[in-house]
Design a protein around this nucleic acid. Structure first.
Lengths: 241, 241
DNA sequence: TCCCTGCCTTACATTTACCTTACATTTGCC
DNA sequence: GGCAAATGTAAGGTAAATGTAAGGCAGGGA
């Protein structure tokens, strides 16, 4: 339910109670977050932040060697990422102080795990938009948003038909796409009689994406069946056209 | 304390109680927000959103002709901007339903005005990073605030349509913007039959921003797909339109 | 061996999408 | 209303994208 790129975000969790730390970490892990670091003091948090370069910080207000507000200000000097306060004190003044300093959210203990997860997801979603997907092939990358392939730092534009065909192949990366399906993708209704033209386009695409277009490794032909795009890391195969 | 660009954001407020509407509006106005529209039903909200193009929506869950959740889904179809729920019901299930659908925050009535203001500010701050009003292109700069381009120290004003088109291109800087999308941006509803006119505008824009309008380098055409604005450094804009 | 099938490759013809320009019309302001 | 600026329209021109065709090549079967 959570996108991959969200789950990969680096989260820093700062609290002085080991029990709470454990609990929150397990909640987050359960949800699928993969990159979590913890700290139990201002000093430790600053040190960890330096090497970890977090993308979201969850801070307690009460810390043995200072408070969360001061910590937030120090963290903000080093990087601009969202901060969420998670604290036992529920006094409004504290809340406002946190927000006034630029906090992105504020939760009062005790809290419902689910609400914490939702709020974290909301902040991350809003702060880090999905970057446009770069399809990695052997030896080059394809940027479908920009309709270009990047080979050795060089940006080579795709034409309309090339774009349509590559999109169709990408949507079914790893699987065979029949000639018929490709003609359909490029010529829509009345996709007949273009088989030869399709071949010419395949050749042109290969000239852009392959190292040796005559010995294709990314856009391979499956004799008698169709073509197949071999992506380095499999994209979301489970969604249809 | 609130930056200008935050105060100029367009806020849509939907609630069926006129009293609460008035109260929240006065709180927001007091804080300095300049662009507020209200609606008292789902139908009215949809209509207002169409013409107002909000940048943040504050929604009540209970509405006379539907609920806030359904409304949010409909609004999300038209634009990707943050949504905040503001509701009398405090049941956790409601809260989770809102968050699950992609809400950015959730507040339960009665609430402290100050907290609402802080939460709104936090969302806006995070969603709309301060934009550099000066867009640098190869050979010139565009000032969208003033709707003019600066080329060689000379300030050349943009016309309304040129501005609309350049804005749309800028919001998607680097990416392809289709002819359809551009017509939509410039002519809104009924964006059909203006393809030729669009071309004329593109030419005029090129005359203002390009060194050699016939060999464009900033506003390039991608045959069969659309146009693309090449900005020197990617703008810090992470919201689509 | 020869032919057949299916695909590749290349050069070339055609077409389409876009450019360019001049001009007509509309809009908005005085 | 009248003017200037902005916007829309039309038509001829052009290059890039696409389509076509013809010759090749490799493998398989008779």
């Amino acid at each position: 339910m959570l996108s991959d790129y969200i789950k990969r975000k680096r989260l820093l969790l700062v609290d002085d109670e080991p029990d709470l730390l454990d609990m929150v970490v397990s909640i987050l892990k359960e949800e699928g977050y993969e990159n979590i670091r913890t700290a139990q003091s201002v000093a430790e948090a600053l040190k960890t932040a330096d090497e970890f370069d977090p993308e979201l910080a969850i801070l307690d207000v009460m810390l043995p060697d200072g408070d969360g507000f001061g910590l937030m200000e120090k963290l903000k000097e080093k990087g601009d990422y969202p901060m969420l306060f998670l604290t036992a004190r529920g006094e409004d003044e504290d809340k406002f102080r946190g927000f006034g300093l630029g906090a992105d959210d504020y939760m009062v203990k005790p809290f419902l795990p689910k609400e914490l997860l939702f709020r974290i997801a909301a902040i991350l979603r809003r702060s880090y938009k999905e970057e446009d997907p770069l399809v990695k092939l052997s030896g080059c990358e394809i940027d479908l948003e920009r309709a270009e392939v990047i080979k050795g730092g060089e940006h080579i534009p795709l034409t309309a038909k090339e774009f349509a065909l590559l999109s169709a192949l990408y949507r079914n990366a790893g699987r065979i796409v029949t000639i018929d399906a490709l003609c359909e993708a490029a010529w829509g209704d009345n996709p007949y009689g273009y088989e030869n033209s399709l071949m010419a386009h395949i050749r042109r695409i290969r000239e852009k994406i392959e190292k040796n277009p005559s010995k294709p490794v990314s856009l391979v032909t499956v004799k008698g069946l169709g073509y197949k795009l071999i992506a380095e890391r499999q994209p979301g195969i489970d969604h249809k056209v």
